[in-house]
């Protein structure tokens, strides 16, 4: 048993790769700083800037960005920077909550459909098709009209409308994983289906889900904006990023800064989350460490 192939230690591969922090890179570091800033804004913004963000000052209407108001002021003279900071909490709560709800429901349905097949698959995919055939906004109007538009309801509505993508992606990925020889090997040593799902199927399906989630985050922020637009989202005067863009739409030709400020914030946040998600996925995948 003095095999040549058994002699080489495996750690040379690990040593040749750069450390996780080197792979992180300067750009990701900047995005991480941005996300930390957003987190701080969400945690402490409302406590310090609520007054500037909410109170109209009609003598300061539609001021372009200058030294006093870095991102300008809106149609009733509120400072846009202050509103962006204060809006971080409600926007991120609903966005992250909505993504989490969609992720959990979609992953559950997709995993069941892909792994079990048969009638379970038919039922799960029927659910997905029903959801696809039902207008999102109509569904949102229905739920919010009945249950009211508090944060929890918004999170649930946004999550439920978003589960389809996760379910479809997850089903496909699980079908592929299920055909892998290591699943049969796990059965051969006596693993139960629950163990196979938890140990092999779900961990191997995480990367595509992370990517879908980072894309979905943007969709969710914009969906909240649409809901705010028809008066079902975060209720004014509390600001939200999407709601601010909607409010600035009418002034796009005369006061572009009303839209651009929150637009840039949404873009940078979404980009940051998707880049860090990418990095995290690569770090968590040992098959890429070679």
């Amino acid at each position: 048993m003095t095999g040549i192939d058994a002699a080489a230690p495996p750690d040379d591969a690990a040593a040749s790769g750069a450390s996780p922090w080197r792979r992180f890179g300067i750009l990701n570091a900047l995005f991480a700083l941005w996300l930390i800033a957003m987190l701080i804004a969400a945690l402490f913004g409302p406590a310090f800037l609520a007054e500037q963000a909410m109170l109209p000052r009609l003598d300061f209407r539609l001021k372009p960005p200058d030294a006093a108001n870095w991102l300008g002021t809106d149609a009733v003279g509120r400072d846009i920077l202050a509103r962006v900071v204060v809006a971080a909490r409600p926007t991120l709560t609903i966005a992250l909550g909505g993504v989490a709800v969609g992720l959990v429901i979609g992953t559950l349905i997709g995993t069941l459909a892909g792994y079990c097949g048969g009638w379970v698959n038919l039922v799960c995919m029927a659910l997905v098709d029903i959801k696809l055939g039902f207008p999102t906004i109509l569904f949102a109007i229905g739920v919010i009209a009945v249950f009211g538009s508090d944060t929890a309801n918004l999170v649930i509505v946004i999550g439920v409308t978003g589960f389809v993508t996760y379910a479809r992606v997850q089903r496909g990925v699980v079908l592929k994983i299920k055909a892998q020889p290591y699943i049969e090997a796990a059965r051969a040593v006596g693993s139960s289906h629950a163990r196979i799902l938890a140990l092999h199927v779900v961990p191997n399906a995480l990367s595509p889900l992370l990517i879908v989630a980072s894309i979905d985050l943007v969709r969710v922020i914009l969906l909240e904006a649409s809901l705010s637009f028809i008066g079902l989202g975060i209720q004014p005067p509390t600001p939200s990023w999407g709601g601010m863009i909607n409010a600035g739409r009418d002034y796009l030709q005369t006061a572009w800064w009303i839209c651009v400020g929150p637009g840039l914030v949404i873009m940078l946040t979404a980009l940051g989350i998707s880049r860090l998600g990418d990095w995290l996925r690569d770090e968590l995948d040992p098959s890429l460490v070679t």
């Binding site: 892998q180 020889p181 290591y182 049969e184 090997a185 796990a186 051969a188 040593v189 140990l199 092999h200 961990p203 191997n204 995948d285 040992p286 098959s287």
Partner: peptide, 14 residues
């Protein structure tokens, strides 16, 4: 017990 044909495919990469 069984040993499988494709050694890399039969081991969970994670």
């Amino acid at each position: 017990q069984m040993v499988f044909q494709n050694p890399s495919g039969a081991l969970d990469p994670r």
